[in-house]
Design a protein around this nucleic acid. Structure first.
Lengths: 114, 114
DNA sequence: ATCACGGTTCAAGTATTGTCGAACCATGGC
DNA sequence: GCCATGGTTCGACAATACTTGAACCGTGAT
């Protein structure tokens, strides 16, 4: 019976700006988003910055990002592919992602995000 | 001895992107920021949306915004004037404030921000 | 079928945030 | 001086959020 491999994703119409901002307001989550900005990654590939992170923790971070409408999480064999919902976000919150991703990445003068 | 009427404000160099995002990720705080986008307001004038809000709560919201570098809080007689640190924010996080303020204000189709 | 793998979910403890009354503190007006 | 006003800070409690091990679940390989 109806297995659950397909996780629920909010429609953009029910995504609130504050939820997106909250999802991006955590350094670990923001780092993940930065990684995904270059293209989809599997769970295992993702989080290069934080290799020691327990998988349950990483899974939880992803859940927050997913429920906020920031990230898509789709099954692919026995892996899962994470991807930024960039086009949809750009349409719903124009310029937001660009400005967040454009702002002072990790290794910057004052390390502004992390 | 050294009275405290002048509250501490972080220099932009020590403001982290994630802190700004966090400050903006609360509907009540975001609403305040929206009000201040039209110009400075005193504490009392501000928060028109939430008139019943206890003053200690409002003061706390302001503290979070101030400590995140989003807002300035300066004494003016026996009032305090709140203002957006817009120019500084624009310089440090180009486009961020614009996109946040531009995105779907309160009374919008799906009420996207809480 | 069995097993290892990649990942999610559960549960429980910890930590961080939010809320708000009460006390306090400058200031301006009288 | 004294008082009202506008606002901050403190303290205590409620509510969220974070972290993590353990259990569980599909899938692919053997």
């Amino acid at each position: 019976m109806a297995t659950v491999t397909r996780l629920p994703h909010p429609d953009m119409s029910e995504v609130r700006l504050t939820d997106v901002l909250f999802a991006l307001s955590d350094p670990a989550r923001l780092e993940i988003v930065r990684e995904l900005a270059d293209g989809p990654l599997s769970m295992a590939e993702c989080g290069a910055t934080n290799p020691a992170l327990p998988k349950s923790t990483k899974s939880h971070l992803m859940k927050v990002l997913r429920e906020a409408g920031v990230v898509r999480n789709e099954p692919d064999g026995r892996r899962r592919v994470l991807s930024l919902r960039r086009a949809e976000l750009d349409e719903t919150f124009p310029g937001l992602l660009d400005s967040v991703l454009g702002s002072a990445p990790p290794t910057t003068p004052a390390n502004r995000d992390g």
